[in-house]
């Protein structure tokens, strides 16, 4: 285990030092890597651990972004505070959705439809609310200062998004090792059995969705102050919901390192291939490449890339478990 922690510490130090050598553009790629890793991790809390598939997680991202921006523009509230309020609003919406879903036993596709419906309804409501910029969206003012969560260069964004990602990993790790995490996994594996054994499945499902929504909403605040433009279609739309779940799926569902690894694979892939094929004449090839990689991973690595990476790294990082044979696999990146 010490080797694993040593490896992580070195990795952490390297990533912390990156802004010393990298320019704005490459830092921008890392910002997107961390951002999507964080959002994927937030989604992972619900879907990866309890097994309830949410295809409408853009809803919470959008609520966080819009709430933070609304408070900042109308009440001058710093996004640093506004984002937590946004988190609570997203949690409340998540709890309402969860109540409908879990209380009335909607599972599988029915729960999926419920999550899509909520995101779509919110998208339409926001599209018609003047106070939220309706369909033209909200343009944020650019007024760089720490208090406003806005900066000139990408370095502060880099550290903030990195911090988001690291904190999310710590949070998920803590949840995983707590009773809550055990119950959540029990629910994922067999909800009826868990219930029969005395797990209050309703309570833990609700907790999971509240935490997941809360975390996702915080990312919304970051997005708003990084991109400076919010549009209902891009914040609540289906495309964002799908973009958001791709990384944990590619990396590995229900693991701590899965979303992070997935993000480190997919985000640079799309970025580098776009830059490479942008010379003209090959427009869109990068999207095809992106799709092909996603398909290949799902076909050949249904449990995510993380499984293979742990297999590869275990003998080096965890010699004691690797020697005990199969147990090493079980203790994979979780």
């Amino acid at each position: 285990m010490t080797r694993l922690y040593l490896f992580l510490a070195v990795l952490f130090a390297v990533l912390m030092a990156l802004p010393l050598v990298l320019g704005n553009y490459v830092l921008g790629i890392f910002v997107m890597v961390y951002f999507w890793a964080y959002v994927g991790q937030s989604w992972n809390v619900l879907t990866g651990y309890t097994g309830h598939i949410s295809l409408g997680h853009a809803l919470y991202l959008g609520v966080g972004a819009y709430a933070t921006t609304y408070f900042a523009q109308n009440f001058g509230l710093s996004p640093w505070i506004g984002m937590f309020l946004g988190g609570f609003i997203a949690s409340a919406i998540g709890l309402f959705l969860g109540f409908l879903g879990f209380r009335f036993g909607m599972r599988g596709v029915y729960f999926v439809i419920l999550t899509i419906a909520f995101a779509e309804i919110t998208r339409l409501i926001v599209s018609h609310m003047e106070a939220l910029g309706s369909f033209t969206g909200i343009f944020l003012d650019f007024d760089p200062s720490f208090l406003h969560f806005q900066f000139r260069g990408n370095v502060p964004y880099y550290y903030i998004s990195f911090g988001f990602m690291v904190v999310s990993m710590v949070v998920v790790r803590t949840i995983e090792r707590s009773r809550l995490g055990r119950f959540m996994v029990a629910i994922r594996e067999n909800e009826e059995a868990a219930q029969a054994l005395g797990v209050n499945t309703f309570k833990y499902n609700m907790l999971a969705i509240a935490i997941s929504a809360y975390m996702t909403a915080l990312a919304g605040a970051f997005y708003a102050n990084y991109i400076f433009y919010l549009h209902p279609n891009s914040m609540f739309g289906m495309a964002t919901s799908i973009e958001l779940i791709l990384r944990p799926i590619v990396g590995g569902l229900g693991t701590i390192f899965g979303p992070v690894l997935g993000s480190f694979i997919l985000s640079p892939l799309s970025e580098i291939s776009r830059a490479y094929f942008s010379k003209g004449g090959l427009e869109g090839l990068h999207l095809i490449l992106y799709g092909v990689v996603a398909i290949l991973v799902v076909l050949f690595m249904p449990k995510g890339v993380i499984v293979y990476v742990t297999k590869m790294l275990n003998p080096i990082l965890k010699p004691e478990t690797a020697r005990q044979g199969k147990r090493g696999d079980d203790a994979d990146g979780r």
Binding site: I29, M32, S234
Partner: peptide
């Protein structure tokens, strides 16, 4: 997409 435009 706005965020891609920014990154580009």
């Amino acid at each position: 997409k706005p965020e891609v435009g920014r990154q580009e």
